[in-house]
Design a protein around this nucleic acid. Structure first.
Lengths: 346, 346
DNA sequence: TTGAAAGCGCTAACAG
DNA sequence: CTGTTAGCGCTTTCAA
């Protein structure tokens, strides 16, 4: 392996080479003003000549402000995490903070709540000035530095959080479908342990009640946010004696399952069947399916800004920040594609 | 702010509470066998009661193996980085390593080469067992632990790397376009300082030469991988007295610019104009544009596996690993959308 | 089987 | 303006 030093260059080496004490070097490193110009220059030169880099670990151990934010996310490869990270990224760009993302690659690799708590502590107790936790299942965290949760599973967590308006989004969906003349509208559930999924279901029920449409429990079918489950449940619905004319899926992954099922049954969307999915992050948006955009990226952006405020010891205006959802109506694939190009939504 | 301890719980606190020395606690923490079963249980209990988490910084400073890999990316919000991260994520899941991603959010925030080198050292000299660096511009790195580069700008870097077969991919594109009967094929360049962009251009030229088509330098126009530049250059091309019948864009972002330009000129794709873009990661794939898939995610996957080998002190079979590109022919948006659903490429 | 003590590389008083 | 000194929290000999 080329280009590798045998031993790491430390502040000691720099000090020795420069003929000064380590504290002087440290001062230069930290941009303190009380160093003679000549000394400073010499040290800087030696630093770059030796290829010295300060040891993050040692530095974090001593000083308190690190200008580093942490992000704990179960994986970094799925659309959901990616959307949130886009927003976080934007806020980081605008700030003076850097970002350290910690991931185990897979939520199933290690367990959940315990590990979330562990990683939050790991980062916050040593390296970072605060951490963002995405889709957290834990009810509380032990940490010195501030934390903020994006879309926590718990509805009323014990920590500041950013959440989408899931209930109202569901109301919007139903209002739209009902305005289209639908009376038999089915709902494909999300994972019941997740707060946001339950709010969507609640909105579904409430909208029917308000519209004076009797709730048919046969039209409420299980799901788990996957395309496979959406597919299965949609088939079940479409084979009913009295099938629904519209299906509201708890997320866009499930909606794609519905799309597949409709295709297999030879049904056309939206002529024969209206399909709406919550979320707007997967290929559903290219299939002409109407979706609810809860702007995950916006949630990441706002969360980061809130965290930075906390790291700067400013107080927060609200403990729970709500990001509004938006119904995105679509009719065909081509229309979408052209729209996204015209709007330069790259 | 609720749920926050005033002071971080340290190994000292655990030791004191358990009535043992810190070294005993440390032994338990590190799974050493020479601890009495009874003592171990008691300590474990106290650890969880106190909510103790070991300080990553302090730990890293003393021990050498950290089971942690680093990733340095200029940003985590752009399609390019995201694709690579998907593959890295997959490899991490399969391994015993965790991943720490370091980003400044934006390549322009801080500078480039110097900062890349800095971050690599930062991670590798303290926290991680090795780092992956994406789209690196630096020619060399000073680091103790191993590094691997994904798609480095430099063609022959001084460190192990994973690269796409850019030259051959370009050859494939040209073969395809020529087989369609095109003779006037234009090329929109990428950033000239980037090795992979230059290889694509080289492939373009070589293919023309081999096909006995004279190279018209007017058909080779500048670009910088952005949609805007692709748009401008495409307009320039299409307004030529003798315009091209096909355009090969150095990446898919530029290809979208071409798509926009064609639309403005009232040209239909592919009837009036064939468009091919290198890369397969943006919405280009939903616009019916033919693209070259260089499987960035595969590159991330392989790089991670190579890095793990190095971290385990195994030797590498090759210093430069080539990941083959693949031409993805498309004719219309709908076809693609259906294809991707049928294939369940979520 | 356990404890005491020596640092890892760094920053932050405190003197000078 | 600069050096001395004392740890940060942890792992790791070395003794007991």
């Amino acid at each position: 392996m080329p280009t590798q030093k045998k031993r790491t260059v430390t502040i000691q080496d720099v000090a020795k080479t420069a003929g000064v004490s380590v504290s002087t070097v440290s001062r230069v490193l930290n941009g303190k003003v009380d160093v003679a110009g000549e000394t400073q220059e010499r040290i800087l030169e030696i630093i770059s000549k030796l290829g010295y880099t300060s040891n993050l670990a040692a530095r974090s151990m001593r000083s308190h402000r690190k200008n580093l934010l942490g992000l704990v996310v179960p994986d970094i490869g799925f659309p959901y995490s990616i959307e949130v990270m886009k927003g976080i990224n934007r806020a980081i760009v605008e700030s003076t903070f850097d970002l350290l993302v910690y991931t185990t690659g897979d939520i199933h690799k290690t367990g959940t709540i315990l590990h979330e708590q562990h990683y939050v502590s790991l980062l916050n107790n040593s390296l970072t000035d605060g951490v963002i936790i995405v889709a957290s299942a834990a009810a509380e965290f032990i940490t010195n530095a501030p934390i903020i949760a994006v879309d926590p599973h718990i509805i009323n967590p014990n920590y500041p959080s950013v959440q989408g308006t899931n209930y109202h989004g569901a109301l919007d969906v139903m209002e739209y479908l009902i305005s289209l003349g639908h009376r038999r509208i089915a709902f494909i559930c999300g994972r019941p342990e997740i707060g946001s999924a339950e709010r969507r279901l609640k909105g579904y029920r409430e909208a029917l009640t308000q519209a004076g449409i009797e709730i048919d429990e046969d039209l409420i079918v299980p799901g788990d946010f996957t395309t496979a489950a959406g597919h299965t449940s949609a088939l079940q619905l479409l084979r009913l004696k009295n099938p629904p004319t519209a299906i509201f899926a708890a997320n866009d992954m499930s909606a794609i399952g519905v799309y597949q099922a409709a295709e297999e049954m030879g049904l056309r969307i939206p002529e024969d069947l209206s399909v709406v999915g919550f979320d707007n992050i997967t290929e559903a948006k290219y299939l002409g399916l109407t979706t609810v955009d809860q702007s995950l990226s916006e949630m990441g952006y706002i969360a980061t800004q809130m965290l930075i405020k906390m790291a700067n010891k400013e107080t927060l205006d609200v403990q729970v920040h709500k990001v509004p959802t938006k119904l995105v109506k679509r009719t065909s694939c081509l229309a979408v594609a052209e729209m996204s190009v015209a709007g330069k939504q790259m």
